[in-house]
Design a protein around this nucleic acid. Structure first.
Lengths: 225, 225
DNA sequence: TAATTAATTTAACGAAAATTTAAAATATAA
DNA sequence: TTATATTTTAAATTTTCGTTAAATTAATTA
């Protein structure tokens, strides 16, 4: 396996630098974020192997960041950094799905041990899930979950079937005929597909009447971008 | 690491005072409980680093307290205090997961040594806890125990089988098909599963009609969160 | 072994969710 | 423009779920 990537989320540059130096000396790679928003963005872009998350962030509540990270990538190991005696935060963090909790101040040796531990446990759980990511959309075919801006959106079975086909053909056009034959068999009316496309758009598009993800190719079919 | 917090559980105020004085003089912090119920409550609130537990408590059986503490925090070092020659209690305590056993009367020097030892070992063994924790739910697959708000809830064999599958797939959707094939084999009706899900929900959910843990994925299966 | 208790299965029914259908409104291409 | 394709809407239909209670089976105890 290549070197694990650690996402460091902390608003203090000094702490980020300290962590970066320590971790890179252990032949780990690091990506960093100073705010909760940035953390969510970087997490989707860089797909880190583990996250070090400081609870005291300026913009978003740390626990909220944790929750969204967790829902975006449910097996991603997340270790919380926080000041001692923040019992409320600790409980909330563990409930929201943190894998471990390290109180400041901490020794680097201890932190590295925790990282190794979480990484070992986290990685053996699940192989790398084939995630489809586009803009604020994240689709995990293995877990049968779809997230829009980090928030899970529920799809009915038919809606999922269609979405899955679109993801597998992402970028290419899926003809009506192909979809119909696959999901409805010989019987089945294209009109049914149209109704479902509308429903899906209303769930995943910001402006369902100006779809950015599911594009209509008139006379042919649909395309996912 | 900053000063360790020791939870003292003993129904005799005089003994608590003695221990408190001795331990604080060693720059340890203490929290105290005079009953089993209080011990469980304080343990969750103060999250001590180690527990000194007297087996002869007025309300709950000491071993029962030990068991619950252990299931709540599986790596928490617990040292049992008990009168000499209570061999039965000693065996039961060690089987229930005590880390050490000190008989009264004992010298303070001995106790401190035991504390230091347990603390050192406890901290290095770290995180080998196959516990599923979510909200007020704690599930110990190894011990086959489920706790809701610290109180054990008993499940029938079938209920356990289902719960275990859900825990192992926690976060992911378990399809009806998967569960049925695994637990009922080729014969078996999804309706049976539905009845069991209802029973489990009534045991573990606060509002069984608005389940927070076992989520229905209509047309697909169930998901544990 | 019989009696008792616990666990599991089965069946029925109303409620909720998903799917289909049909028709009107809008957009697109020739 | 005219014809065709698509979107939108709402209602009808079907499927799935949760719930309940009784029937059956298994386990325990006297």
């Amino acid at each position: 396996m290549s070197d694990p990537v650690v996402l460091i989320v902390d608003d203090e540059p000094a702490i980020r630098r300290l962590l970066r130096t320590t971790l890179t000396s252990q032949s780990w790679k690091t990506v960093e974020a100073g705010t909760g928003e940035a953390a969510l963005r970087v997490a989707t872009e860089a797909s880190p192997d583990i996250v070090l998350l400081d609870l005291g962030l300026p913009d978003l509540d740390g626990v909220e960041v944790l929750r969204r990270l967790r829902s975006m990538a449910s097996t991603l190991p997340i270790i919380i950094l926080s000041v001692r005696d923040d019992e409320r935060g600790k409980v909330a963090a563990l409930e929201a799905g943190a894998d471990d909790y390290v109180t400041k101040p901490f020794s680097m040796a201890e932190l590295i041990a925790r990282l190794r531990n979480a990484l070992r446990h986290g990685l053996q759980k699940e192989g790398t899930a084939p995630l489809f990511v586009s803009g604020d959309l994240t689709i995990d075919l293995v877990r049968r979950q779809l997230f829009r801006a980090g928030v899970e959106v529920k799809l009915s079975p038919r809606e999922w079937d269609i979405m899955r086909m679109l993801v597998r053909y992402a970028g290419r056009v899926l003809t009506h005929q192909t979809i119909m034959k696959q999901l409805w068999g010989p019987t089945g009316d294209v009109q049914q597909l149209r109704v479902y496309i509308r429903q899906i758009r209303h769930k995943i598009e910001q402006k369902p009447d100006m779809p950015a993800h599911i594009i209509t190719e008139t006379g042919v079919g649909y395309r996912l971008v």
